[in-house]
Amino acid sequence: MIDVDNLCLKQGAFHLNSVSLHIPKGRYAILMGKTGCGKTTILEAVAGLRSFASGRIMLNDRDVTHATPAERNVGYVPQDGALFTTMTVGDNLAFALTIRNQPAAVVKARVEQLASWLQLGHLLNRRAVGLSGGETQRIALGRALANHPPVLLMDEPLSSLDEETRERMIELLKVLPKQAEVTVLHITHSRSEADQLGDLIFRLQEGRIESVASRVL
C-alpha cells in the first residue's frame, strides 16, 4: 500500500500543492501528467530521494516520511535504467542482497530465479554496458525486485523502447503485482500504457491530482 497525504513542495517556480494518493496493496497505479508537472518529484519523494515541505508518506501502514531510502525498502526503476555499469548483469541483480550480506546460496538462487523470469540468463556474466533498451529495463526491474520490496516505483520505464519491446514489457508488467506481490506506482505519458496496465490512474495537473480513474477488477 502507498499512501501519500497532502504532500507539498516548492522549488523555485515549481510547486506541488497538497498531493494525496492512495494505492491499495497489490494494485497497479499509473500517474500521468505533462512533462515537468512533478510526477518524478512525487516518485522520488516516495522513494525517499527528495525532501518536501510538508506531508506524510506511508508504505504498508508504516510512516516512512522521515525514513532513509534504504529503510523504506522500495524498488525503484528510473527512466534510463541507471544500471551499475562497473558490474556484471548478475551483480546488478544481486546488489540489493549482497549489500545486506545475504548468504551466497540465497543470492545465487534469487538471481537465477529473476534471470529465468526476465529471460536474462544469457547476460548474467556480461558487463552491464551496451545492452538494448529492453534488456536494460528488464535488468533494472529485476534489480529493483531482488529483495522482495512491497512497493515498486517506476519512472517512465517504457518510454525509450521500440513498439515491439514495449509490448513485450507490458505483458511482463501486467503480471507484476501478482508475480512479485508488489504495489506498483508507474509514471507514464502514454494513454495506452495506462489503459493496458493501470488499475488506478491518477492525473497530475498544475501541482495537484486532478482526477482518478479506477478499473474494476
Partner: peptide, 17 residues
C-alpha cells in the same frame, strides 16, 4: 549520472556504501 547513486540508496545502501 547521480541516478545510479540514488538507485543504490533505494537498494539498501547507506550514503557511504
Amino acid at each position: 549520472s547521480p541516478r545510479t547513486e540514488q538507485v543504490a540508496l533505494t537498494l539498501g545502501c547507506t550514503r557511504a556504501q
